[in-house]
Nucleic acid binder design. Structure first.
Lengths: 105, 105
DNA sequence: ATATTCTACAACCAAATGGTTGTAGATCAG
DNA sequence: CTGATCTACAACCATTTGGTTGTAGAATAT
């Protein structure tokens, strides 16, 4: 995963509307206009949010007739969690190291 | 945690330099200028990154003489992980629900 | 066939972001 | 005391971001 990929992923999470879209489409399917109806902004704005989420692998679009069905994509979430787990591991190592120093000291 | 807080948190993670700073200051202490020496950018740029990380609770600054010592702050990381865990829980509920439907069908 | 719906995308705008240089206050060293 | 170092912050700049309206194509409904 490149830096740019990670940037895209966390950037995608850094917006409340997009986080809400992720929650919704994980629970149920929505068309883009179905999503747009939920928010106090234009269709185009919501469509752009969906594009951002798609590029971050947090959402998948599938054409169905004239609609585009949006569903959650577990891949992006898993990547994000794995990344944060790495940071957590660094913390754990640090805590262990300090404990060792205290033990031998 | 407000939407704005969550925005700040993920936004802070959405930059490779800032992620690198977080890793470094979790392992060891750095002054702001000590950090600045590591990157191909101005002191002011790095100082701003530290401010962003501090506002996101990912880093803590402590004045020591004329230096400002930067250390990792577990709080922000924990918050971020807990948030992603909530999304994961939504996924799990969804998977369970589908399994139930298949079982009774 | 025509009208409607859904989507994509361009063009535009204001605000935020990530960088720069410059200035000034504190602290430390000689 | 003087000079060097460390930090904070202002002002500025280019690019990105999150929003808008408008246009056009594809699929559906009447």
């Amino acid at each position: 995963m490149s830096d740019a990929d990670v940037d895209r992923l966390f950037q995608a999470f850094a917006d409340a509307t997009r986080r809400d879209i992720v929650r919704r489409v994980t629970v149920a399917e929505y068309s883009v206009s179905g999503l747009a109806a939920l928010y106090a902004m234009s269709f185009a704005a919501v469509q752009k949010h969906v594009v951002v989420l798609e590029r971050a692998s947090l959402v998948i679009k599938e054409k169905r007739g004239r609609e585009q069905i949006v569903r959650g994509n577990h891949e992006g979430l898993q990547k994000a969690r794995r990344l944060l787990d790495e940071y957590e591991a660094i913390w754990r190592r640090r805590v262990d190291r300090i404990a060792d120093i205290l033990a031998e000291g």
